[in-house]
Amino acid sequence: MRALPWLALALAFAFIYLPVGTLVLFSFQDGRVPVPPFTGPTLDWYAAVLADDDLMEALLNSLVVAVGSSALACALGFLAAYGLARHALPASGLMRGLLIAPMTVSYLIVGLGLLIVLNRLGVGVSLWTAGLGHAVINLPLCFAIVFASMGAQQHNAERAARDLGADEVRVIVLVTVPMLAPALLAAFFLSMTLSWDEFIIAFLLTRFDVTLPVEIWSLLRSGLSPKTNAVGSLVFLVSVAVVLAAELIVFGRRRR
């Protein structure tokens, strides 16, 4: 009986790691077809990925879009959270609802709406429009995370700073932001992960310069090969490295 939970845990991990394990294993496949039997190992497919300019360009594009849209979403989300938490505003419930609303709508619908408007306005789609779309879907998350962590503790510190003569801008920059840094970082990091991996909005709102998921999608549609495994494995390993680094940074900060 005591072993049961551990058995369940092992099964759950087996399920969770089955696709990832298969993906990574067959990225070393020596041949074109990434299914058993396993032949190899070879690093050819990794070489092919690193030599693929389109993929590398898409990777950089993804990074730029993720950082840019997350920074914007965090800035807007933070300001709104500050305004709603520190100032008594009429209809604040309604405004909170409006800011959260995009979270309850499918990405496909957000993307389609923007695409229709851009078409009507004659604005061509590009990485900018994809970043715009990502900022729309990430703003609710950033707002919610920052708003939730605005507690009485910061409020007291802000009040103290104001009593000592600091104006509102200085209070925000010198007191609120540093105190909320963990929440802001968490919001920024989460937004970045979502934007980094988002497909449908990026697919609808880009043309020639595309983000990595869109490029992988066209790779998938252009031929079955372990190259897709290799690029997937690379993205995974890089992301895990970043996650672990972030985890250590946040963990370290909590310990202190």
């Binding site: 807007l76 409006l98 995009p102 957000v110």
Partner: peptide, 28 residues
């Protein structure tokens, strides 16, 4: 002035959401 300052903070996010979420939705 308190309320006006508060609006100043919330306005950018509200405008953003209105322009790029609510308006596209209405057009759709």
């Amino acid at each position: 002035t308190e309320t006006r300052a508060g609006w100043g903070f919330v306005a950018p996010a509200l405008l953003w959401t209105t322009a790029f979420f609510v308006a596209p939705f209405l057009v759709m």
